[in-house]
Design a protein around this nucleic acid. Structure first.
Lengths: 341, 341
DNA sequence: TTGTATGCGTTATCAG
DNA sequence: CTGATAACGCATACAA
């Protein structure tokens, strides 16, 4: 590898001069600068980041710890973080915890990831959540600054997430505005706080509309297709079944629609369905599913930008919440006047 | 940050001794070793990778260049690569080219990514493809060893991919074994070589079965839902429509099914459909779609393992092809004896 | 068995 | 304006 020494020799100057034209740290005569620049490009010089960091004690590297890169939500966030930070001269060191694959939180992996990040003197880490109901304990294991994105973080942590309460309100308002009065929910796993926020947000709209959300209309799900299918069947067998169902993710929404088909019901004519996440299955389903889009890319940008501010010592709000958007497709319609249920 | 000097001082030994117990490079008396180890953990010493690399000239860092991390295929490959390499002491520096977002190949981004990788003295890079029809030109822009995963690489490059020809044969054999005789294809974008391999593989089975694949049964698609929908309509309006359709990805398979519904046809009773990719939409569709699973994780592991061999100077086959697997679900059945088409 | 000293590629201080 | 030179944290040849 070519070093500044090689460049200096070729240009017939000292390494100090080379360094100065490289960094513009001092005035260099036009002639010398020219010589150095020529040598630089002739030799195709590339600075050695290790030496640079070692000397300057400024390690321009930031860790990205993904809870699970295979979660649908992670790639867009990484995309944003990576783009934003690379543009600003930071190197991204990636660690993947693979929570999904292991089906439980692997503390060992977190520890070894932290070792990697500390060894490379990463300035800090952006933690990208996926499914863990609680990541607060993580903070105690990490000695460098951390910012949580898309995670169930504590109020005392820095975090960027989306507003579950408002998103659920959006879903409810859409259904109510279509004239639905009997609306059911199939929830996500109840050990996750934000699921409750979603229920509360939904309920707030129902109440404001002068309607009620009876307990038998709130069925617990676990994010998975199969249970959602079963719960839908229960709902459909009720004496007074709902005319609309809010499923807390798109795969469960697909299950709802499948169960409706099995019962000879058409969506949206006989029953309206609204999902969450805007995953590809919602777009490609027949009928295409109306759902809530999470501002994943925006979360990533906000995370990267905030993190840089954090490193600069700027004051930062601890918790930032971004808004979801309703994505209207074909699975919601007004309820039949005289439901044939 | 604590250095070996701090540790040495606390333990009352020289830095050389600390280094030796750290790396086991020389025999150290049990007593000294004990002292050093205590100091090490008391001070919570973490080696500085920059200094280490600089001294040893062994930069244990490997670049991962993702053509697009948002492509469905990329995360599982990164997952595998990251896990395999981290376990072996390598640091992953991630660069994302974002081909999808830009809708065309961004050479500038490639260049800046290469700069980052060269600066960090990455030993080489694993390039993870997504959609680019041709990545051969990339090689000329990269000076470090590269291995292509999931990419349309040249024969002269090192690459790991899946066997498109055999995968298409699997699809065809499944359909033929169910008794189908009139089978159509909706292809992917024809500027991609592997699409032709898929057509050839499919055709080979058709011929072996003594059947034919007339030109009007091979409709060009572009991977997208909408065009596939239109092409399906054309197929269905034929005087002699097919009894089965092979769509070269799952979103197109979803479109085929949607078009069938529009025509009052049921899948799989009236028409069988087989997709490709095993994306989530294929699992959650009603009916669930029979498709071909790509060994993404395996490609990642093979890429990482091969890359390490490459760095060791071991001989390596230039091209490695892994097999896809048929994933049977509900969208394929035997054709009706007397089709009511 | 343990310690001293040098150099890896930079940056930056201080003379010249 | 330019050039020696020290130091960053570590590994290692060599000395003790």
């Amino acid at each position: 590898m070519v070093t500044i020494h090689d460049v200096a020799k070729l240009a017939g100057v000292s390494i100090a001069t080379v360094s100065h034209v490289l960094n513009g740290t001092k005035k260099v005569s036009a002639k010398t600068e020219e010589k150095v620049k020529k040598a630089l490009s002739d030799l195709n010089y590339v600075p050695n980041i290790a030496a640079k960091s070692l000397k300057s004690q400024d390690y321009k590297s930031i860790g990205v710890i993904a809870e699970d890169i295979k979660a649908f939500s992670t790639p867009p966030i990484i995309d944003a973080v990576c783009g934003y930070l690379n543009e600003r001269g930071y190197t991204i060191t990636l660690c993947n915890l693979r929570t999904y694959s292991h089906s439980q939180y692997d503390t060992q992996l977190l520890i070894s990831s932290m070792k990697i990040l500390e060894s490379s003197r990463a300035r800090g880490a952006i933690y990208i959540g996926a499914a863990s109901p609680n990541v607060s304990f993580i903070r105690s294991m990490i000695k460098i600054p951390v910012l949580f994105a898309y995670s169930s973080a504590l109020e005392s942590d820095y975090s960027i997430d989306y507003d579950n309460y408002k998103a659920a309100r959006l879903a409810a308002m859409h259904l109510v505005s279509q004239g639905h009065k009997r609306i059911a929910i199939i929830t996500g796993a109840l050990d996750q706080d934000f699921v409750h926020q979603r229920i509360m947000g939904f309920q707030s709209v129902i109440m404001e509309a002068g309607l009620t959300l009876p307990p038998e209309y709130i069925l617990p799900g676990n994010w998975n297709y199969n249970l959602a299918y079963q719960q839908t069947c229960k709902l459909l067998d009720l004496a007074e079944p709902p005319t609309a169902i809010f499923a807390m993710n798109d795969s469960m929404a697909c299950a709802v629609i499948a169960a409706c088909h099995k019962h000879g019901l058409k969506v949206p004519e006989d029953l309206s369905v609204i999902g969450f996440d805007n995953r590809s299955c919602s777009a490609y389903n027949t009928p295409a599913i109306t759902t809530l889009g999470i501002p994943l890319y925006e979360i990533g940008i906000a995370a990267a930008a905030s993190f840089l501010k954090l490193l600069e010592g700027e004051a930062l709000p601890h918790k930032q919440l971004l808004d979801c958007a309703l994505i209207e497709r074909e699975s919601v319609a007004s309820p039949r006047q005289y439901p044939n249920l």
